[in-house]
């Protein structure tokens, strides 16, 4: 399992990264922890003639919590998400999700930026970030721009990031209410058969707002506005759960693969969403 030969670069700053990207175009890829990219290079499913390692580039390894938002640098690892006390307080859904990603060794290396930028439909953070209505910051030679997580994903491995841009940070509006990240996987380290991210705000015994996104049930993460809307104004009773699941099933588009046929994936998606809503509601 040896990848094809490539040139390796470890620039010290973003200017160095951007000039390499400008020079080599889509023959170059940036890498943080490498735990999505390196396996694909070993399988020779990813061809990367020029590999740019971001580990020495500063300013992307911090978690900043302010009054109304959370900023997570692209190089923050899943382990750091799990261990961060402030984050556990401000947005516990992040560690609940991160704990369900891969295994301890992979979480020491795998980063938030890599997880969201890679565009793999199996990654957990994209759906989570759509649920939280996060904004991604990308930088290119023309400067920075912001892209909403809900507008970022165009297809499997295809995103709104241009080839010569680097995703540097994720900004999350301070989450409110109850939360849950529920994931069905075949075994430790596997991608989801189905996963659901849910945030619910309650008031006076009723659901005031709900945000729902699903993972690995289409070639992109699926933010289901209709599923969230189905809960609003209800007491999250059986009828509301049914309506939310029906709305969600109308938005996903699973395909048959080694995790099962379409009917099974729809079934699992429904169960997982019900569990996620129930847990989020119990915490709301």
């Amino acid at each position: 399992m040896i990848p094809a030969a490539f040139e390796y670069y470890r620039p010290k700053d973003m200017a160095g990264v951007l000039s390499l990207l400008e020079k080599h175009g889509d023959d170059a890829r940036v890498m943080a922890g490498g735990h999505s990219l390196i396996p694909m290079m070993k399988l020779r499913m990813a061809d990367v003639p020029h590999l740019i390692d971001l580990q020495d580039v500063g300013g992307m390894s911090d978690i900043e919590i302010s009054g109304d938002s959370i900023k997570i640098g692209a190089l923050v690892t899943q382990t750091k998400i799990i261990d961060h006390a402030g984050l556990a307080e401000a947005a516990p859904i992040l560690s609940e999700a991160a704990l369900q990603i891969a295994d301890p060794q992979v979480r020491y290396m795998g980063t938030v930026g890599g997880n969201v930028a890679n565009g793999d439909p199996g990654n957990d953070m994209p759906g989570l970030m759509q649920c939280l209505n996060a904004i991604f910051t990308v930088i290119g030679t023309d400067g920075e721009r912001q892209i909403a997580a809900r507008d970022f994903y165009e297809g499997a491995y295809a995103t709104a990031r241009e080839d010569d841009e680097v995703l540097t940070a994720v900004i999350i509006p301070m989450p409110k209410g109850g939360y849950a990240y529920e994931k069905q996987k075949r075994k430790i380290g596997d991608y989801a058969t189905a996963a659901a991210a849910v945030q619910i705000v309650s008031g006076g015994g009723a659901c005031v707002s709900a945000s729902i996104a699903m993972t690995n049930l289409s070639d992109v993460p699926v933010f289901s506005a209709d599923a969230g809307a189905a809960l609003v104004g209800t007491s999250v009773d059986e009828a509301a759960l049914k309506a939310a699941v029906t709305a969600m099933l109308g938005d996903i588009d699973p395909t048959e693969d080694n995790r099962g046929p379409v009917a099974f994936k729809n079934h699992v998606a429904g169960i997982i969403l019900r569990r996620a809503i129930a847990r989020a509601w119990s915490r709301a």
Binding site: M1, Y8, G34, H35, I38, P39, T79, P104, Q105, V106, Y108, M109
Partner: peptide, 10 residues
């Protein structure tokens, strides 16, 4: 200080 799978690092 990190546990790493050395088959997944150059």
């Amino acid at each position: 200080g990190k546990s790493v799978k050395s088959c997944t690092m150059f």
